[in-house]
Simulated assay, not measured.
Amino acid sequence: MDESPPQPPAESTPPPPPPSGLSGSPSDFLKGVVGKRVVVRLTSGVDYRGTGVLSCLDGYMNIALEQTEEHVNGAVTNRYGDAFIRGNNVLYISAAEPL
């Protein structure tokens, strides 16, 4: 049996910091996008884009958007002045502009 000498431990380097805008908790992100343009994807695959802003959001992810466009398969299908989206239909919220 060939026993090789023990190897020194590999140097551990800390992981790189997350890209800009990705640090913090989901709660921090949501607080940061209130008053900004967002894309809201529903579980059905429909996107709602606020050309105005995300005006409010509650603990159940219920969302109020201003100047909202509905996008189905990438095409605008409707425009609404204001829209209320029930939180249990939301798949995700994304910032439409850099944070």
Rank of each mutant, 00 (worst) to 15 (best):
G52Q: 01
L30A: 08
V76A: 08
A64R: 13
G24Y: 10
I85H: 04
P14V: 05
V40T: 02
S55F: 06
T13D: 07
V46E: 09
P5F: 09
M61A: 03
P19Q: 09
V76I: 15
R49L: 12
V90C: 06
N62D: 14
D2L: 14
E70W: 00
N73P: 00
N62E: 03
S44M: 04
P17H: 04
S55L: 09
T77M: 05
G21T: 07
D47R: 11
S44Y: 03
I85C: 02
S4G: 12
P18G: 06
Y60N: 12
P6G: 02
E70D: 00
N62S: 07
V53M: 03
L42E: 10
Q7D: 06
Y80S: 01
A95W: 00
L54P: 05
T51W: 07
T68Y: 03
G59R: 10
A64C: 10
V53T: 09
A64H: 11
K31G: 12
G32F: 04
E11W: 01
G35D: 11
S44K: 08
L65M: 02
S23Y: 12
G52V: 01
A75Y: 01
L65H: 00
I63G: 03
S23L: 11
R41E: 15
M61S: 04
R86H: 13
P26L: 10
S12P: 01
N73R: 13
V40S: 05
V38Y: 03
Y80V: 01
A75E: 12
P5I: 02
S25D: 02
S12A: 15
D28L: 11
P26V: 11
P98K: 10
G52I: 01
S12H: 13
F29P: 08
A95V: 05
L57M: 08
E69Y: 07
G24T: 11
V40Y: 03
I93D: 06
P15E: 06
N78H: 15
T43W: 00
V76S: 04
P98I: 09
G50M: 04
G50H: 04
K31V: 10
A10I: 12
Q7H: 09
D82F: 05
F84D: 02
T51Q: 12
N88E: 14
V34C: 10
L42P: 01
P18W: 07
L57N: 06
P6E: 12
K31A: 15
S23I: 03
T43I: 11
V33Q: 06
A96G: 07
P14W: 04
S94W: 00
G74P: 05
E69M: 06
G32L: 11
A10V: 12
K31I: 08
N89W: 10
S25W: 03
T77Q: 09
D58I: 07
E3S: 13
D58G: 07
G32R: 14
E69P: 00
L91S: 15
V46N: 00
N62R: 00
P14I: 03
Q7E: 14
P19C: 08
I85F: 05
M1F: 13
G45A: 11
P15C: 07
G87W: 04
I93T: 06
I93Y: 05
I63C: 02
D2A: 10
E69T: 04
P17S: 15
V76P: 00
Q67T: 07
Y60S: 13
N89M: 13
R79W: 03
